[in-house]
Computed example of a mutant assay.
Amino acid sequence: MKKVAYSLLVFTVIISVLSCKNETKSNESSEISEETNELALAEKETETTPDFLYVTASSGLTLREHNNLNSEKLGVMPYGTKIKVIAPEDEETMTIGGIRGAMHQIEYNQKTGYAFNGYLSRFFPPEEDIKAKIYADDLKGQFPGVSFTETSGGTASKPTNTETLVLPTDKWHEVFYIAAELFDIPKSFAYPNPKGSNEETVKEKDPKSGTWTSQLTVNRKNNNLEKINYDYRTEGYGYSVDILQEGNKMKLERTEMAD
């Protein structure tokens, strides 16, 4: 009888120990799961709100003391400057040059102030004279959704070469400034206002000598951009640049041809 009672006691102790271990593992698993979820959320927030952005305004972007356009100027940030975002403003509160946006709080040159986010981009701008393929390869390290293709066509007497760059963004103004730098759209052409006639053609006011055609054609529908085309022609040579939206991505295409 004593042996039976002793066996029951041992069995009870073993069950209790195993139960405690399982409960501990369950708690540890729960804590790990919560930590994983927190890390995933943190990574997602980092993707949607980058810590650094780049200035795309060719003439530079003004840093202001407060978040309005009448505030005192603290300085001008040159094209391509990398700035740190302190507090982003996601709600669009103003329109400048046809671009909807707001004022981000940023840090630049050891100063904290505000700048219009319509002239800020998460894509670092192309360096002068950089090849489109090299620029695309550089971007892919940070943005896997970037793609680049190059194709040849035309005829033996009139060959063509087309470079296509696809960027993971739906912001027209963001890619317009990249296209201008990468695909030789003259800086004198301002970003087209989305509001306007269904088709508008603007000629370059002071083209370089020997230019036959240098013009920007804008297609709109219901005051939204549908296509931006730049066309350049001179004796024996020409190229065109198309900017189009495809779903949640933007396509930039430059076709070079011999006339």
Rank of each mutant, 00 (worst) to 15 (best):
Leu41Glu: 13
Glu43Arg: 15
Glu43Val: 13
Glu43Cys: 09
Glu45Leu: 12
Thr46His: 15
Thr46Ser: 15
Glu47Lys: 15
Thr48Ala: 07
Thr49Cys: 05
Thr49Lys: 14
Pro50Trp: 02
Pro50Phe: 09
Asp51Arg: 12
Asp51Cys: 07
Leu53Ile: 10
Tyr54Ile: 05
Tyr54Trp: 14
Val55Ile: 08
Val55Leu: 03
Val55Cys: 07
Thr56Gly: 01
Thr56Asn: 03
Thr56Asp: 07
Ala57Leu: 15
Gly60Asn: 01
Thr62Ala: 12
Thr62Tyr: 06
Leu63Cys: 01
Leu63Asn: 01
Leu63Lys: 06
Arg64His: 13
Glu65Asp: 14
Asn67Leu: 08
Asn70Ser: 09
Glu72Arg: 14
Leu74Phe: 02
Leu74Val: 04
Val76Cys: 00
Thr81Phe: 03
Lys82Ala: 10
Lys82Val: 02
Lys84Cys: 06
Val85Ile: 15
Ile86Ser: 12
Pro88Ser: 03
Glu89Pro: 07
Glu91Asp: 12
Glu91Lys: 14
Glu91Met: 10
Glu91Asn: 09
Glu92Gly: 12
Gly98Lys: 07
Gly98Trp: 04
Ile99Gln: 05
Gly101Gln: 08
Gly101Ala: 04
Ile106Trp: 01
Gln110Val: 08
Gln110Ile: 02
Gln110Cys: 03
Thr112Phe: 01
Gly113Trp: 03
Ala115Ile: 04
Phe116Ser: 08
Gly118Val: 08
Gly118Lys: 10
Tyr119Gly: 00
Leu120Gly: 04
Leu120Phe: 06
Arg122Glu: 14
Arg122Tyr: 11
Phe123His: 11
Pro126Ile: 05
Glu127Asp: 14
Asp129His: 12
Ile130Met: 13
Ala132Glu: 02
Ala132Met: 05
Lys133Asn: 11
Ile134Glu: 14
Ile134Asp: 15
Ile134Val: 15
Asp137Val: 08
Asp137Thr: 09
Asp138Tyr: 11
Leu139Cys: 12
Leu139Ile: 14
Phe143Lys: 08
Pro144Gly: 10
Gly145Leu: 11
Val146Lys: 11
Phe148Val: 03
Thr149Trp: 00
Thr149Glu: 06
Glu150Tyr: 00
Glu150Asp: 00
Thr151Val: 01
Gly153Val: 03
Gly153Tyr: 03
Gly153Ser: 00
Gly154Tyr: 01
Gly154Val: 00
Thr155Val: 04
Ala156Asn: 13
Ser157His: 02
